[in-house]
Design a protein around this nucleic acid. Structure first.
Lengths: 221, 221
DNA sequence: CTAAAAATTGACCACATGGTCAAAACCGTA
DNA sequence: TACGGTTTTGACCATGTGGTCAATTTTTAG
């Protein structure tokens, strides 16, 4: 699970302590700039100004803007994966019912977002906008594909166990991911919202959406 | 309903036939460029090249890039509203059950997207990215707010009628809108997908998500 | 204390951006 | 044909972009 990037933790190629600190500092400020000026507004100049350093220094620590953004995405993603896995390990014994797995998945993801809204916001912005020279999304497609496959596995397991009704796992996966990402926007736009209440609503929503109705609990079609 | 823009139909300020034709032509090509190069990749130069005219001519027909993008959004939005309203009028007699209203809402929206994926894709791209000089989203917030309110009305009606279970109408509205917009991305990434099947799945999903379970059909808490 | 290494600056580059404008081409019509 | 309005171009502008690099400061180690 969670395997788009094979990286483990800090992939920060900086040798010295100073270097690593700057590296982190630049990433943190990049998050801020992207989060409140958007992908298009996050120029190297603006980021440098925001950090309080010269633009050249960014180039000293990162090969180019692409690498900076990639590092940002990788960093937040890795932390998110750790966060979710920690919860998973704590709450999910082997062979849990799929509905439990789904609940933990949702709570984990929404929990991480609630705790790091700006970071996740920046990542979403980048994933949704960063393109190569030919105009193809750099992360976009593969990213979604991976996350959807992951969820689909949970759904299929639940359907085979008769726990979930029959539905297209792909469509349900899209719905779940879309709602999760939507939460990022919501919490950004309304920072004072009740994240736990939102989470509870979403969990219930998808519980109803997936669970087999008593009469449908039969075997195959 | 559907009232962010008070405009009715073509707001095209062009007096002559030629002018109106160019106006439309530029908008159509802008859709194409935004749809496959993204918001950031849609420069006036690229749009002009794509149309086969000089950049200056765009400025002749539109006061600026902002106005061009606004016109684009308004145009597609208006057509979408008409599309949905037509279906509504055809299929929805007064005092329909809320579940029917929701179904028609979903089918209308997804139907329009399936019929005009690139146009809607471009609009989503613009709405999600276009910012003013201070970095605030120009459409983003108000846009969502309006659409959510609309859906919330349906949900509240359904809950008052005992047809829907008790849930936060706001959260459900967010979920519905997120899934609808997600469909735009899906159909863009996989143009050969089965839109009707997807629609059916989504309708079922939200039917389960909203409908009151037999035992819950009671009155208030 | 000194010399090498690391970190940092600021000037610079080629290029793209949105926007302007005078000149030219096009057009209907008197 | 000549006029007047509309349409269209292409050169131009100020600004911003990502990126480079020699020169400089700061840190580290011998």
């Amino acid at each position: 699970m969670w395997s788009i990037f094979s990286t483990s933790g800090q992939d920060d190629g900086e040798a010295t302590v100073t270097g690593a600190a700057r590296w982190t500092q630049i990433l943190r400020h990049t998050v801020d700039v992207v989060a409140d000026r958007g992908y298009a507004g996050a120029s190297l100049n603006r980021i440098a100004d925001h950090v309080g350093i010269s633009k050249g220094l960014i180039s000293y620590h990162f090969a180019g803007k692409d690498e900076l953004l990639e590092a940002l995405v990788r960093d937040v993603f890795t932390r998110g994966a750790e966060f979710v896995m920690r919860r998973w390990g704590a709450h999910v014994p082997p062979d849990v019912p799929a509905s439990e797995a789904l609940r933990v998945y949702l709570e984990g993801n929404l929990g991480f977002i609630a705790a790091n809204p700006r970071d996740v916001g920046a990542v979403v912005e980048i994933v949704r906008n960063h393109r190569d020279a030919e105009g193809r999304l750099v992360f976009g497609t593969a990213w979604d594909e991976e996350l959807h496959k992951e969820l689909a596995r949970i759904f299929i397991a639940g359907q085979e166990a008769g726990e979930f009704r029959r539905f297209d796992p792909r469509v349900m996966a899209i719905a779940v991911r879309r709602v999760i990402d939507g939460f990022t926007f919501q919490i950004t736009a309304h920072p004072d919202m009740d994240a736990d209440a939102f989470t509870a609503e979403v969990v219930t929503l998808f519980d109803h959406a997936t669970r087999a109705t008593p009469m449908e609990t039969t075997t195959d079609a």
